[in-house]
Design a protein around this nucleic acid. Sequence first.
DNA 1: TCATTTGTTTCATATATATGAAGTTAATTT
DNA 2: AAATTAACTTCATATATATGAAACAAATGA
Lengths: 246, 246
Amino acid sequence: MSAVRSASRALQIFEVFGVEGRPLLLTELAPSIDVPLSSCYGLVQTLLERGYLYAVSRRRGFYPTRKLHTLSTAIVAKDAYLQRLLPHLEQLRDAVSETVIVGTRQDDKVLYLDVLEGTQTIRYSACPGDFKPLHSSSIGKALLSVAPGDGVEALAGKADLAAITANTITDRDRLKADLDAGRARGYFTTSGENVADVTALAVPVEIDGMVIGIALAGPSYRMEPAMDVLADRLLRTVGALKAAAS
Amino acid sequence: MSAVRSASRALQIFEVFGVEGRPLLLTELAPSIDVPLSSCYGLVQTLLERGYLYAVSRRRGFYPTRKLHTLSTAIVAKDAYLQRLLPHLEQLRDAVSETVIVGTRQDDKVLYLDVLEGTQTIRYSACPGDFKPLHSSSIGKALLSVAPGDGVEALAGKADLAAITANTITDRDRLKADLDAGRARGYFTTSGENVADVTALAVPVEIDGMVIGIALAGPSYRMEPAMDVLADRLLRTVGALKAAAS
DNA sequence: TCATTTGTTTCATATATATGAAGTTAATTT
DNA sequence: AAATTAACTTCATATATATGAAACAAATGA
């Protein structure tokens, strides 16, 4: 794989701060990203030089400045694509109170572009940037269903369908049948195939030439009895999105 | 200079997206960070793998996901130090309507940790992460005034005091005298020494063992006639901060 | 249909980085 | 005040990366 090590590590440093949420010493940071102290030193110097980190005071550790936040806020504010979907998705989230997810395909995975968490205490939680398997997530199935050629054959050729939970569909033909059922139904589902006790439904949409999947996800006990209503509401949102785009 | 190149470049990529605010092709991104296409390719792959970037669609470029924003929001939310200052600084900003800045010393520069921009259309604008010269910014002078030993001598030893504008104090003795005047006055100022037509005043504070400078900055024509009032209000905020910290 | 253009991907190798080990600094303890 | 500890910084060199050049792929136009 073509990962640029230092670029990865720089991001890992911010991820550690996100988790720890407190100033960290070089000697704490280095092991937490599994990097030699001397290498971590160079990385931290770079982030200091660029104004992304500051020394809280001598020997009291480092913490990120608000530079990264200012930057990411600007990036988000200018994201015309997701920005335009957002109002519709928020309406959807508020209508069903479950988590709404926007995902796209990246190689043989689903990448979450944005997550609007549901309003209930017990809810499906995830983060933008998370990856999910194509064959066991609702968005994954939705995207497979519109993949050029036979999406499933192409997928299975690369790696066998891994069993994430006991419910994961690992058989190619069963997956194809599941996709057919989804096509007939108008939406694609997953029930405990990726995370136990989670049920989700998704549909593929093409907006502005970009193919994305939009999903509703939540605990099975709330989702299962309401699938029809949820699907209706989801499809209505998708209709509104398409109308707004054209 | 111990900059780790790829780490720097990864951040530059986000900076470009912050400025452009639209999906960029590899062929646009590479020249904008002054990197060969093949190197840029590796960086982009890394960011894709880590879920920080997504391909809008084939040959339509890349854009950041919300992962970075989610991360930086978590980091900011957990920043107990600045978080605690914030209410006081907001009050100050609202009271004077001018930009409030928190800065700290990083080597021979001032690093802006946070900037609360004033409420007026004509105002001092800056970003967290910006660097300013020690000898020609108000926070710089405030921090020099509390530097151990003779801050000015140590500074001048490294690099001569660069003239940023025609007003910049480039003479060591004049700078010392200016600091003395500041000490007597109770606050430190700069008038067009760093940016033409900008006047600022700052004081050093030690909170929780960390030495920072807090400044008010704005256009000279508004600042100059109000220095006494502004200084009063600034010192009052600093008093409140110290009281809250102890 | 074929040629052209534009954008992406790969690869061998020159080049810059990452790292273990040693050195420095400052605070804390004895 | 000396010894100890903990954290940071430096450095020579093994090692991984960056890059020019060339191949590839898709879209566009003739």
